[in-house]
Simulated scan of single mutants.
Amino acid sequence: MPSCTSPHRFRRTAALLTALAACVALAGCSSAEPSASPSSAQGEAASGSTGSTGSTEPSRTGGPDQPAPAHVSIPSIGIQSTLMELGLNPDGTVEVPPAEKGMTAGWYSGGSVPGTPGPAVLIGHNDTRFGRAVFHDLKNIRDGAEVLVRDGAGRTLRYTVTGKEAVSKKVFPTDKVYGPTKDSTLRLITCDGEFDADGHTVDNLIVYGALA
């Protein structure tokens, strides 16, 4: 099964805000064994082999009393998943769900909590070595589609898809994805495109949403 790796590499700034307008990132999914950590911001990064990280995570936007998101569903394309929390790997890259949990999406806890100002980032695999994964059909989503995010307290937030784009991992739009926004916004990220000689997808698919 070909693989795709997905680094997000971050530099801390004094104005971290909603994670990371000043960061360098390549986001998406991983479907094979963890790869070697990158030597540059545009290199292939290691994806976590577990759902945890040994590094210190940026503070999330929303405060300690804000319930973390627990579930996401997209009725129009049949996606439903619980959400695991994702932090940073020891090499500074953002974790992705482990391949053996390919049908589970994750929320990057260094970003915004859904429902608070700023972008909440959900990451899921397209495919893993175990087969198709949770965001396999994300490419079929249309503008205006509803994305429902439920938090641990049982509150459901309704986001509306405002657009999507496939981008090369070499020119990932970091500021557009992770930069601060006045309102509560959502980003869904997975792998996309053709495979390179190493079996890694060359693109990411990014879906943008706004709180309805």
Score class of each variant (00 low, 15 high):
30 S>W: 08
56 T>W: 03
54 G>R: 11
44 E>K: 13
212 A>V: 10
205 L>I: 03
96 V>R: 06
44 E>I: 15
67 P>E: 03
32 A>T: 11
190 T>Y: 06
21 A>M: 05
170 K>E: 15
11 R>T: 10
52 S>H: 14
155 R>C: 09
38 P>V: 08
68 A>N: 03
55 S>W: 06
163 G>N: 11
52 S>A: 13
141 I>L: 01
64 P>R: 14
24 V>Q: 13
108 Y>V: 04
175 D>C: 07
50 T>H: 04
211 L>R: 04
45 A>H: 12
145 A>Q: 02
75 P>T: 06
204 N>E: 03
111 G>L: 07
79 I>T: 13
4 C>E: 13
194 E>Q: 15
51 G>H: 11
49 S>W: 14
162 T>C: 08
15 A>W: 02
23 C>D: 09
171 V>G: 04
167 V>F: 14
161 V>Q: 03
8 H>D: 11
106 G>K: 09
167 V>R: 14
9 R>E: 08
90 P>G: 01
174 T>G: 15
183 D>F: 09
74 I>T: 09
103 M>N: 15
129 R>V: 12
41 A>E: 03
99 A>N: 01
6 S>Q: 11
205 L>H: 00
121 V>E: 05
3 S>D: 13
68 A>W: 00
35 S>L: 13
122 L>C: 07
5 T>N: 14
10 F>M: 03
54 G>N: 08
38 P>H: 09
84 M>I: 13
82 T>A: 10
173 P>M: 06
207 V>D: 08
47 S>K: 08
117 P>A: 10
177 V>R: 04
89 N>S: 07
157 L>V: 03
17 L>T: 05
105 A>Y: 12
41 A>Q: 00
75 P>E: 06
173 P>S: 07
98 P>D: 10
43 G>D: 15
46 A>I: 05
139 K>C: 00
108 Y>R: 03
58 P>I: 02
83 L>G: 02
193 G>I: 02
90 P>K: 01
190 T>D: 11
146 E>W: 06
163 G>Y: 10
73 S>C: 00
188 L>M: 01
174 T>H: 12
62 G>I: 03
172 F>M: 15
118 G>F: 08
111 G>D: 07
201 T>Q: 15
42 Q>K: 11
202 V>C: 00
55 S>K: 12
33 E>A: 12
149 V>Y: 05
193 G>Y: 00
209 G>T: 04
186 L>E: 08
